[in-house]
């Protein structure tokens, strides 16, 4: 577990974003136990209060759940996970569109480039 934090966004927001990424990509599986707030704080080198805040927000959003005194777990709600994934994609697309708008580029050109880039990265991974 490793996050490179930026200094201007609230840390708890960055922690939540990280969890969403892991959940959306399946790196954190549904029902998987997650670290305690203290373990998280210590792993990420953040204040335990911040870890606590992140967990509280995620719990409210339904990303994680806690039964009794057991460790918290990743949600098993498939729809929820799908919506997180959707949200992550939309965020990325928004950012992308926002970034290329000023360059005035056509849709076909962009799609071609994206395809090429993705293939290239896939090759690179092999």
């Amino acid at each position: 577990m490793n996050i490179t934090f930026n200094k201007r966004d609230p840390l708890y927001v960055q922690v939540i974003r990280y969890f969403k990424e892991q959940i959306a990509t399946g790196a954190f599986e549904p029902g998987e136990e997650i670290p305690s707030r203290r373990e998280l704080a210590s792993k990420l080198k953040i204040n335990p209060n911040t870890a606590q805040r992140a967990y509280k927000e995620m719990e409210e959003e339904g990303l994680i759940y806690t039964e009794g005194n057991n460790p918290s777990k990743v949600t098993k709600d498939i729809e929820k996970i799908a919506s997180v994934r959707q949200e992550m994609i939309m965020e990325a697309v928004d950012a992308f569109v926002h970034a290329i708008r000023p360059i005035n580029v056509s849709l076909d050109e962009v799609v071609g480039l994206i395809e090429a880039k993705l293939n290239e990265e896939q090759e690179g991974r092999k």
Binding site: R8, D9, P10, L11, Y12
Partner: peptide, 8 residues
């Protein structure tokens, strides 16, 4: 966290 959240 407050200045990060409210004032960026």
């Amino acid at each position: 966290e407050e200045v990060r959240e409210k004032e960026g």
